[in-house]
Design a protein around this nucleic acid. Sequence first.
DNA 1: CCCTGATTCGC
DNA 2: GCGAATCAGG
Length: 202
Amino acid sequence: MSWTDERVETLKRMWAEGQSASQIAKELGGVTRNAVIGKVHRLGLSNRVEGDDQPAASAAPAAQPAAEPVVATAPAEVPRVAPEPEPEPEVEAAEAPEPQPAPQPVFAPRRPIVPAGQPLPPQPSANEISPETLASVREVEKRSLKLSLMELTERTCKWPIGDPATDKFWFCGLPSTAGKPYCEAHVGVAFQPMSARRDRRR
DNA sequence: CCCTGATTCGC
DNA sequence: GCGAATCAGG
């Protein structure tokens, strides 16, 4: 593969969007992330500065940030969280009534009635899980990356959250435990000792 | 380990 | 110009 104008354009666009070199390489195909990075440098756009003007000047862009005033979130990380800045304003809008209306709390204190819908994920009843694990799961689900099916990888927690029949459905997405399909917290509720779930009666 | 970008240097 | 290898860091 060679750097045709078209490919370079894609590279520029994606790089500007904050996509990582590997993502761009994947998209282009036929090149490695190294190739992408190399090209980025040769094109002289290693500086992911949005506004065209280059503050290059002299001064020191890295003049000891000393104290980041407000948000301490690494700016470079942000874009990766939302890899799809697509033209779909629907999702946002006036949103977020309740971050966690708890569609189907995994820890339902007395598992009410399961609406005979899709086979819900393995959701052991609360009385089988330790309080610590429960708390952990609750915490984790607040921080879940809410990945879609397509965004899951070998190393993301595949624990489903919410009702598959609605829009309130996503996957945990946090880093999974080595070799396991779930993150640490979810492994806790997914894999239990036989003895613990033996006396489950209904 | 997984990942990121940066740099080098033979081609 | 290109990009694998390597480096440095999270």
